[in-house]
Amino acid sequence: MQEKVTVITGIHYRTEQSVSLYLEDGRIKEIVPLPAERSGSALPWIGPGLVDLQINGYGGADFNTIPLPEGTVERATRALWQEGVTSYYPTVITNGDEEIEQALRTIARACASDRVSAAAVAGIHLEGPFISCEDGPRGAHSASYVKAPDWELFERWQEAAEGRIRIVTLSPEWPDAVRFIERCAAQGVTVSIGHTSATEEQIAEAVQAGARMSTHLGNGAHLALPRHPNYIWSQLAQDGLSACVIADGFHLPDPVLKVVFRTKGERAMIVSDAVYLSGMAPGAYESHIGGKVVLTPEGRLHLAENPSLLAGSVQLLPSGIHHLASRGLASFAEAWEMASVRPSAFMGLTAQRGLEVGAAADLVLFDRDDQGISIRHTYKAGQKVF
């Protein structure tokens, strides 16, 4: 039986040309320009599906609540589809050994038993506990659980995750970190440098060993750094490192974002690093990590007792894209690609070709104006999921 062909029409996010996309068997079969009489401002925009390499939770679904309630991953996935996210990496942060194992096992079980979760979860991001123990670089991660890289422990966690750990954030300042990085690289696990106080030499050795990325570069750092050298400059200077940044307008000032983009070029990507309070109504909350926090109507999450200190991110990728484009830090097409085809290509996902014939049909139909981006529909492998 011939596969049904789905046709979607809109404005191509890069060419700004009105087109019809023909989808068949989960892929883009054909792209046909529309005649002038069928073009118009009422059409939605069409872009590749968004890919979030680092997300801790969304809409009350938290990947770090132990025990992880059944259905958490599926609820998060369906909610993220409403935000145009077609692939993501649930992020498990520093915790006790057993707690991390339990979270990994529950996420893996969800992917094995639920087609919704399996379709969207491209892998798991393990952020810690092999990070700096220093205040500042450690960020909000609990000091009591931070430790040196431990390969035997990682193998145990990878077994619990059924091989789904695809990204590990660590600091190369630890002895024997190089050997750990080499082992990860040999198994196809992306090592990302983050929450670090490593020296320039340690960062260079980590890259030589196989580290490929920087985790939320510019955040998870000391409040004051030496003018030079310091670990932010050192990571920017490493051509072998791609850089992820949080582009919500709160975590990094625009000049820093501009420098990262100019330095890294095609290797620059954006992540949300959103916590589970993302998507919730503004107000005061009790966070199991940050304590009493406040989510403002503008989308800024801060500590209740000290509004100058952020308590995490709550802006998803569409907000980051809008911020970059509206502030002139990147063209709209470039900003969209920082959150879609670039991370997809970096991680070797099937949707990395974007809007091309033969590419995987992970797509987003959306509206955009001066106020932001509004998602109309999301397609995963050619199927409308929102």
Rank of each mutant, 00 (worst) to 15 (best):
Q82V: 07
T77A: 15
D52V: 08
E74F: 06
A79T: 08
L68C: 03
G59F: 13
P69M: 04
T65Q: 15
I55D: 01
V73N: 01
A76C: 15
G49K: 07
Y58P: 05
T77I: 10
D52M: 03
S87K: 15
G60K: 01
G47M: 14
Q82W: 04
I46G: 07
A42C: 06
I55V: 11
L50C: 07
W81Y: 15
R75Y: 15
P48T: 13
L50D: 07
G59Q: 12
A79C: 03
G49H: 06
A42Q: 15
P69F: 05
D62Q: 04
R78H: 03
F63H: 03
G57D: 13
E83A: 13
T77V: 15
L43Y: 07
G71V: 11
A61C: 15
R78D: 02
Q54Y: 04
R78I: 05
G59L: 07
V73C: 10
E74N: 11
V85R: 00
D62A: 07
G71C: 08
G49F: 06
V51S: 06
D52R: 01
A61E: 11
T65H: 13
W81C: 03
G84T: 00
G57Q: 04
S87Y: 08
P44H: 08
I55G: 06
W45R: 12
Y88L: 13
G84V: 01
D52F: 00
S87V: 00
P44T: 07
R75L: 12
S87M: 02
V73Q: 09
G49I: 10
E83M: 08
L53Y: 01
E70F: 09
A76L: 07
V85T: 14
N64C: 12
D62C: 05
P67N: 13
V85M: 01
Q82F: 06
G71Q: 08
G57F: 01
I55L: 09
Y88H: 12
